[in-house]
Design a protein around this nucleic acid. Structure first.
Length: 567
RNA sequence: UGGGAUGUAGCCAAGUGGUAAGGCACGGGACUUUGACUCCCGCAUUCGCAGGUUCAAAUCCUGCCAUCCCAGCCA
């Protein structure tokens, strides 16, 4: 038979090629160690926090790899430590994986599903004289483990008769001993340069109620023991994980090799994702949430999937980002600008356009009759006529962006200034004739005259209008709150800083604009993945705070802006 | 004086003995009823460093340097 040839493209259209695919191709191909097997991967989160974009990379690799080989990918909650885990997170994790666009079918599992089988394997190991019950205290064990440069020393309990270990282990399970008094340890090699092989703990006593198994157990297996067995039981062919597990692989292989399991999965490691100006560790994210420095796990400034979702990121943009970053073993730090690029690219093709004025100033069309009003039809997406059109109303009193007017502009400023003509997108070309100030000299109104012959915004024959400005009809505009976001941290790598992370927080990461205005249809419309407010960025309704009475928009990402007055 | 990995542009990243892909960022230009989008152009005489093998080296060999991970009864 011939080997399975990986598909070269994903749904997002990216050509995927990396070393893991190469390895798997060899494994399942002719003469490979898994010749002819269906590729089967798994995504194994610990339910102790919310998923972030680093997990998205893992999900894209786990599910994407299975997809490429026409295989399967399971989801398995790694719930072997009841003290740290909570069911609260399970549903959130499911939602995030689905939201990203992946489906595990009927293969949603828990490591705890296998507690009985894992236990049986432990007994078998004891009988094979490959594991023993140890009575060292945590402190004694730490000392006996040795250091990075000196070998460890064997536990005094290492050579106790296996019958005794078996009896003790059963009594551990029966709940006869308090936490910390006994452990089950693998009998490997206390002199190994790889500390994971210095008789690692396989089981510890923990009188804790488990979310799924309740009080059935008072001993729980360690990750290094439960994980390979879980993989093998599910007949996972390739167990893909991050780099820090690289030196656990010999132990993974030891467990697979010495236990009676139905398959022999292969672990392959890849570098986890880092992005500058943010943090990715669950610990730090939790801290930000618990200290109230952000508005919950789904704060739009956070790199959590729920935060990105609320910010207006699309699953497609995130998948695209992960795929285009590639997969390698190099510790890397990806530029957040690339993430933003992926979002803009997706939204540019799919988000309808609207006009919104974030910082309004009045514009009065002095030669347009008071009380008169007309309706213009504008393309919802100029680059895609099939997206249709929508109405905008025009009248004497309009709103424009405050920085679209200057009394004394620099060169190449194409917007409003006395004497200049600009196009009010979709309606008319107008000439700025002046402005009014209040007692303090503050500009409160811009004045202009419209040219009736430019209806729809088309210029007169031979005339070139450089500036096109967005605007709203004061009569029909709807008030909205708009939230602008910037990086949460002021430094590229907060983790590497010696300063306390509180000092690294960007004080301007959130800007709330209370009195912005938007086109009225945005009050009802919720049918789109996001909107482009022309010339200002991509926005989405805030899913928490938008109500029937109040509109709240989050800026997902600003538009690129090449305007540079200094040039 | 341990073990495991990794070094290709500002950031990702292809490349597997035949003469440095691509993307992001950046700079320039064209187009434009979004200073957006799109489109062109530019952006590593050199692959951590030093030797060596070869007609030919980012790719092979030797030595060195730098960075990351590991001493939880966490995952």
């Amino acid at each position: 038979m011939t080997g399975v040839t990986p598909r070269e493209e994903t749904e997002t259209g990216n050509e995927i090629s990396h070393f893991i695919l190469d390895e798997i191709t060899k494994d399942v191909g002719p003469g490979g160690r898994m010749e002819g097997l269906t590729v089967h991967t798994r995504f194994p989160p610990e339910p102790n926090g919310y998923l972030h974009i680093g997990h998205a990379k893992a999900i894209v690799i786990d599910f994407g790899t299975a997809e490429i080989f026409n295989g399967l990918c399971n989801v398995r909650m790694d719930d072997t430590n009841p003290e740290k885990e909570d069911v609260e997170y399970v549903e959130a994790i499911k939602e995030d994986v689905h939201w990203l666009g992946y489906d595990w079918g009927d293969r949603f599992y828990y490591a705890s599903d296998y507690f009985e089988e894992v236990y049986q394997q432990a007994e078998e190991l004891i009988e094979k004289d490959l594991a023993f019950v140890c009575e060292q205290t945590p402190e004694e064990m730490r000392i006996a483990r040795g250091t990075l440069t000196t070998p460890g020393t064997e536990s005094p309990w290492r050579y106790r008769p296996k019958e005794e270990s078996l009896d003790l282990f059963r009594r551990m399970r029966a709940g006869e001993f308090p936490d910390g008094t006994y452990t089950l340890r693998a009998k490997i090699d206390m002199t190994s340069g790889n500390i994971n092989l210095r008789d690692p703990v396989l089981y510890r006593i923990q009188h804790a109620t488990h979310d799924r198994t309740g009080d059935d157990w008072c001993i729980y297996p360690m990750y290094d023991f439960a994980h390979p067995i879980g993989d093998a039981i599910e007949c996972i062919t390739h167990s893909l994980c991050s780099l820090e597990f690289e030196d656990h692989r010999p132990l993974y292989d030891w467990v697979i090799g010495n236990c009676s399991v139905p398959s022999k999965p292969r672990q392959i490691e890849f570098a986890r994702l880092n992005i500058n100006y943010t943090v990715m560790s669950k610990r730090k994210l939790r801290q930000l949430v618990e200290e109230g420095l952000v508005d919950g796990w789904d704060d739009p400034r956070l790199p959590t999937l729920s935060g990105l979702r609320r910010r207006g990121y699309t699953p497609r943009a995130i998948r695209d980002f992960c795929e285009r970053n590639g997969v390698s073993k190099v510790d890397s730090m990806v530029d957040i600008k690339f993430l933003e690029h992926c979002l803009r690219e997706d939204l540019n093709n799919r988000a309808p356009r609207a006009m919104a004025v974030l910082d309004p100033i009045k514009l009065t069309i002095t030669n347009y009759p008071e009380g008169k009003s007309e309706i213009f039809l504008v393309d919802s997406m100029p680059n895609n006529p099939e997206a249709g059109k929508h109405e905008v109303t025009f009248s004497r009193h309009l709103l424009i962006e405050r920085d679209d007017f200057m009394i004394d502009p620099p060169k190449k400023y194409y917007r409003f200034f006395p004497g200049n003509k600009v196009r009010l997108r979709g309606s008319y070309i107008v000439e700025c004739t002046g402005y009014n100030t209040d007692e303090s000299g503050e500009i409160i109104e811009v004045l202009a005259e419209y040219d009736p012959e430019t209806s729809g915004g088309s210029a007169r024959e031979g005339e070139r209008i450089r500036g096109t400005i967005h605007w709203l009809d004061e009569m029909t505009a709807v008030k909205a709150e708009v939230r602008l976001y910037d990086n949460l941290f002021t430094v590229e790598n907060p983790d590497a800083s010696e300063l306390d992370y509180h000092e690294l927080l960007n004080p301007d990461s959130l800007t709330v604009i209370e009195n912005a205005y938007v086109e009225p249809w945005l009050k009802e419309d919720r049918s789109h993945i996001g909107y482009q407010f022309m010339r200002t960025g991509y926005f989405i309704h805030d899913c928490h705070d938008t109500t029937d009475e109040k509109l709240v928009f989050n800026r997902s990402v600003a538009l690129r802006d090449s305007y540079n007055p200094d040039k």
